[in-house]
Design a binder for these strands. Structure first.
Lengths: 330, 330
DNA sequence: TTGTAAGCGTTATCAT
DNA sequence: ATGATAACGCTTACAA
């Protein structure tokens, strides 16, 4: 006998009480006769009854759903985010709806409207752009921007500046002084963090220490073109992501340069790439980030009226691609 | 002015019509005055109004939600599944709720009950065990088991037997005759598929061709213990997953054995590992699987009353870890 | 302590 | 073609 559509009314009938009494039992209302309570609970258990969540939400209860919108699921970083978001949400009694905007602004807006129509309790969004955030702001739905910082919007992210600094501090502590950064943009906070570390340690950095490459399309061939014209100029590299680190290492090894004996390399994001290949990397504290996010979205701290911007501290994961620099190495 | 709680009643008031008329406009009811329709639509657009989905679902409309329950998100395979499930669902107008049972049967049951309480239109489940499926079967909610085949339960999976066969056929086509399988279980369909391929090609296989290892805890050290006692016995290996292939290759290379010049290796599942490291692998057609799943869950084909078991064909992804066998190689 | 009744925002059935 | 009204399943205010 297929049973799926049981309602409180049915349970009430089976227990010989009124429907609101069942509701009271379920919601642990103290003023309900213990004997009746037990009787009702038994029937509920027997039939595996669970109240219709849509009715509850319609009635005004919170939906206990958090929406997660990201712009890219090809990126394992965001897929991994799903894992931690689900876990953090579950532990606070929430359920996760995941949506991929595929970098498409109008699809993203549809997603947002969809979530609002479902009366979700909050939206966690790695946005395609600033545009739809304006729309969200005119809404009563709490939302939190992930990984990007926009003026006037609450957000949670990892300090990339500190990431660069930590990577650089670490390499310096290993004795490296000739450190290069590989990335797309001179204004990359990771690079600025590295600069600050070098300054703090009174190591002067030539202009050649920034190696510009195309991280968007991952056209990296220019890196070695550059390195060939600057031979032996660096003993360590900070790569703005793990893919670059992977590329760098495999190209170096093709040329007979040993990692980490000859050259140290640090990547970024502690993705599966660095895990598999044992590359030291700067990790973003994803789990902590998701826990904090859910806390903020569901907690009493009004994320709506006041702007809260949280920057978490990245963590150095030391693996085999980094090693103490020895003077006699090349 | 925060606006989030607009209802059809509000829109109706603004348009000077009754609330049901707004409903008719939204649901494209043909018998509504075109002029009124336009007027209402304009207001809807202006206010970005979307009807409350909970009310719709309560009223009897479908929730347009599919639940996805898996037992492990540490596994990138299942994380990747989220990506394709979301995409396939979205393209048919559905939204995805993801849940991790963490291999815990009672948590899994909670998830199932939760989803039913939300009146989801279907559940896609990679189950911890057979237990909760019995419960689901007594339910009117359509569900589909992923990746496992149980008697009397509708499911969708990839033929691992064919996967083993395809891998073996491929290696044989490259000229390999001494092929070993590395896995946990002699009854592994992948191994049986390989056996069938060898038989078909009239290649006799010694008992030593099955190399047993601990895939659960990935204690793989015994592999080379075994290989050292069977020197040069094999020219090609089929590994029951990519992790094993990765281990095998790195250990071989440590010993100076070149891949693929000396030895060919095929992995399983086409995970990011094989993608990064250019290892040939047998891919499960995940995207197709998710499209079919959503189709079955939401379509008219009654997955409830009749049992539908679908086995999809795996696909060989040829990369650099496999090469034509040359007699003069070791 | 318990039951009756109203209302959440829709859709569908009925009148008009 | 449109409006009034009931019903979906729940929570809560009120009555008993």
């Amino acid at each position: 006998m297929k049973k799926n559509n049981l309602t409180m009314k049915d349970i009430a009938q089976l227990a010989g009480v009124s429907q609101p009494t069942v509701s009271r039992v379920i919601n642990n209302n103290p003023k309900v006769n213990p004997l009746i309570k037990e009787r009702v609970l038994n029937i509920i258990k027997e039939y595996n009854f669970k109240p219709n969540q849509n009715a509850k939400t319609l009635r005004g209860n919170s939906s206990k759903i958090i929406g997660l919108i990201v712009f890219d699921f090809s990126n394992y970083y965001y897929l991994e985010m799903v894992k931690y978001a689900e876990k953090a949400a579950r532990e606070k009694g929430y359920t996760i709806i995941v949506m991929n905007s595929e970098g498409n602004q109008s699809l993203e807006l549809e997603h947002i409207m969809q979530l609002i129509a479902r009366k979700v309790d909050g939206i966690l969004i790695a946005p395609t752009s600033k545009e739809n955030l304006k729309y969200l702001k005119n809404t009563t739905t709490p939302f939190l921007v992930i990984n990007t910082i926009f003026k006037n919007y609450s957000s949670i992210s990892t300090s990339l500046f500190d990431g660069g600094k930590i990577a650089s501090d670490f390499l310096i502590s290993l004795g490296h002084k000739k450190i290069a950064f590989i990335g797309a943009d001179l204004k990359n906070p990771k690079f600025l963090g590295m600069k600050s570390s070098l300054e703090k340690n009174k190591i002067k950095m030539g202009k050649s220490s920034f190696i510009k490459t195309d991280t968007l399309n991952m056209k990296l061939d220019n890196i070695f073109y550059y390195l060939d014209s600057h031979p032996n100029e660096f003993t360590a590299f900070i790569c703005s992501n793990d893919n670059i680190a992977l590329y760098l290492i495999s190209e170096f090894e093709k040329r007979g340069v040993k990692i980490p004996e000859d050259i140290s390399v640090v990547g970024f994001d502690n993705t599966i790439i660095s895990k598999i290949l044992n590359i030291s990397s700067i990790k973003q504290p994803m789990e902590e980030m998701m826990i904090k996010s859910i806390q903020l979205l569901t907690g009493s701290t009004s994320i709506n009226n006041s702007i809260i911007q949280i920057e978490l501290e990245p963590i150095l994961i030391e693996r085999k691609s980094t090693k103490k620099f020895k003077k006699n190495s090349p």
